[in-house]
């Protein structure tokens, strides 16, 4: 096993994670970090919801990439548009007029042949890599339950389809996806029970069912450690009723909720630390684990993205 390459040295990075763990924020931050290192970056949102562009404070994007920040172009995946492009570019089939409404035919084929949607997504991304339109393609990929199907699609189609143009097409895709120096997967999680379970499960499934290499696990929303052991003892002394009432008197109001909030923060942090430990114990020892802080921000926008990019950069040693 070779050591995991630096995320910024890769050409194609899929960012996945359970819903709500901050997968899109991490994808945007990675893109920003790449651009700061002078790379031409493409970000692609697979489940088009417009969240990714919003993190750059840009209007939602379409299938045709548009610059959303200096050095960063962004697009949203649209499998039908991808099929059109594919047919036009790869097969040179003047297809549209002959087989009737493409949308209908597409819906049909996509439903009939599982993996078609997936391969059109992965295919478009691999194409951008192969054509070297960008130095780094960052994919805000589907949630962990679906990413396996996406990444395994070329292999699955390869197994199903023995001849024909699709077969030749899947082969070059597999070459890109299987190259650990080019393609990587980042699993984003939070230090909570279910996200950690899912990440551990994902690690195994990625290894067993896909040809893509898991490059890193990013643990998001790590709460700050308020106290060391000695501080905690002193904190307990301050929480004694007598001390608390003196504090309230001096501060000019009841401090109980302020202390209680800190206790809650300590408990949350401790619960999280337990899950983080469980995660680290369950992951291969050579897999980088990136620790990203809870940002306590009011809204999500460029400010958050920049802060996250900075934290990510520090974790990657830049």
């Amino acid at each position: 096993m070779t050591t995991a390459p630096d995320l910024l040295q890769l050409k194609l990075v899929f960012v996945t994670g359970k819903g709500g763990v901050g997968k899109t924020t991490v994808a945007a931050a990675l893109a920003l970090l790449g651009a700061e290192h002078g790379k031409r970056v493409l970000t692609c949102e697979v489940d088009a919801k417009g969240d990714l562009a919003a993190l750059f404070e840009a209007a939602p994007t379409g299938f045709v990439a548009r610059e959303v920040a200096p050095g960063i172009s962004s697009m949203s995946m649209d499998t039908e548009a991808s099929l059109r492009e594919y047919l036009k570019l790869q097969l040179r089939i003047p297809v549209v007029g002959r087989i009737g409404p493409l949308a209908k035919a597409f819906d049909f084929v996509a439903t009939a042949a599982p993996g078609v949607r997936e391969i059109l997504t992965v295919g478009k991304l691999c194409y951008e890599v192969r054509e070297r339109h960008y130095d780094l393609v960052v994919v805000d990929a589907p949630a962990s339950g679906h990413i396996i199907g996406q990444l395994a699609a070329p292999q699955a189609i390869n197994d199903l389809v023995k001849v024909g143009l699709i077969r030749t097409q899947t082969e070059w895709m597999l070459d890109i996806l299987s190259d650990a120096q080019k393609t990587g997967l980042v699993a984003v999680t939070t230090p909570e029970e279910m996200p950690v379970n899912e990440t551990l499960e994902l690690t195994t499934r990625v290894r067993e069912e896909t040809t893509v290499r898991l490059s890193a696990v990013a643990v998001n929303r790590i709460l700050p450690e308020l106290f060391g052991q000695r501080e905690e003892e002193v904190f307990e002394q301050l929480r004694q009723p007598a001390a608390e009432s003196v504090l309230s008197e001096r501060a000019g109001g009841p401090v109980a909720p302020v202390l209680e909030a800190a206790r809650l923060a300590v408990t949350m942090r401790r619960t999280g630390a337990g899950h983080l430990q469980r995660l680290q114990a369950g992951l291969p020892p050579d897999l980088p684990v990136l620790l990203l802080p809870e940002l306590f921000t009011r809204t999500h926008g460029l400010r958050t993205t920049r802060q996250m990019a900075q934290a990510l950069g520090e974790e990657l040693g830049h």
């Binding site: 002193v234 301050l238 909720p257 302020v258 909030a261």
Partner: peptide, 21 residues
């Protein structure tokens, strides 16, 4: 109020900041 004023000051600072966060 505690046996270590320096640490108490740090703890109170952290506690207050955490509340605000």
């Amino acid at each position: 109020l505690t046996d270590d004023p320096a640490i108490a000051a740090r703890v109170l600072g952290e506690v207050a900041e955490s509340f605000l966060h």
